[in-house]
């Protein structure tokens, strides 16, 4: 519990993911409050994506737990303290509370922007079509794409595709949004239209964890920034502090390499 008495929405405990003998993320601990905006930074291969993907179990952790709003993702503890793994359908059900936005957009290629957004509400939440379409249209408006709702992904620019992807994730009314380098595949102008949408979300106090190289975004939006290196969370601090006066030498070096610190 923190000072204002808020409970964490997400608790990641001792999370480790190994590929073979190789640690992709090691003993990561992370707590995110409701409405908190977290940014993960770190060099390539430091385990940012792995940490994010373990949170919604797209990657099954080797050990450690992920707890979201009252339940563990991927399993639960029995009364006698033993761990029971989730069945695929239980896991599927829990995943719907976590929205995810990918670097490569991953829009459903055969469906229009509108159908991409309605698919989750209709087939996961079993919402009537009319209601799902209404919600989808509102969300497409929110990401400034109401005029493109009938278009297929191949007919949209990268920035537009990514905004549809954000709308698709929001349509499930998630408790938590994960963004894995959402603008890395975009040129600067398209990057800004996506960041603008994310900024609006942040202002609405959407709980989010964002992996990004956009330091400007981190400065403006993040409540706390985590720095990862070599599969470990090295340190975390509010951006004003972390970007000006990091405690750890490795963080300092990274920020110098990125021309953020002198």
């Amino acid at each position: 519990m923190n000072m204002n008495g808020a409970h964490p929405l997400l608790k990641v405990k001792n999370l480790t993911k190994k590929f073979g003998d190789h640690f992709a993320i090691k003993e990561a601990n992370l707590e995110v409050m409701r409405g908190e905006r977290v940014v993960l930074i770190g060099p390539s291969g430091s385990g940012k994506s792995t940490l994010l993907r373990c949170i919604n179990y797209l990657e099954v952790p080797t050990s450690g737990t992920v707890w979201l709003d009252g339940e563990y993702i991927g399993g639960r503890y029995n009364d006698d303290g033993s761990w029971v793994k989730d069945s695929p359908s239980q896991l599927t059900k829990k995943r719907q509370h976590i929205g995810m936005v990918f670097q490569s957009f991953n829009l459903f290629a055969h469906l229009s922007a509108l159908d991409n957004v309605t698919l989750g509400p209709r087939w996961v939440l079993n919402m009537p079509k009319k209601e799902a379409v209404e919600i989808a249209q509102q969300l497409l408006e929110k990401v400034h794409l109401e005029e493109h709702s009938h278009k297929l992904p191949a007919q949209l620019s990268g920035g537009q595709q990514q905004r549809v992807a954000i709308a698709r994730a929001l349509a499930m009314n998630p408790k938590l949004m994960l963004f894995d380098e959402p603008t890395s595949a975009l040129d600067p102008r398209l990057t800004n239209e996506v960041l603008d949408v994310m900024l609006e979300l942040a202002e609405e106090k959407m709980t989010m964890i964002v992996v990004t190289h956009e330091i400007g975004f981190a400065r403006e939006v993040a409540d706390v920034v985590f720095f990862l290196e070599e599969a470990t969370i090295v340190e975390s601090a509010p951006p004003a502090l972390l970007f000006s006066d990091p405690k750890d030498e490795r963080t300092r070096q990274f920020l110098v390499d990125c021309n953020i610190l002198k």
Binding site: L58, T92, N106, F108, A109, L119, V124
Partner: peptide, 25 residues
């Protein structure tokens, strides 16, 4: 593409629904 399956899983579609709605078409 693997990304299509991951996107389907991320919105909470089960694998058979994803097969029917995403992969097969």
């Amino acid at each position: 593409d693997k990304g299509q399956h991951e996107a389907a899983a991320a919105i909470g579609l089960g694998k058979w629904k994803a097969m029917w709605l995403i992969t097969l078409p």
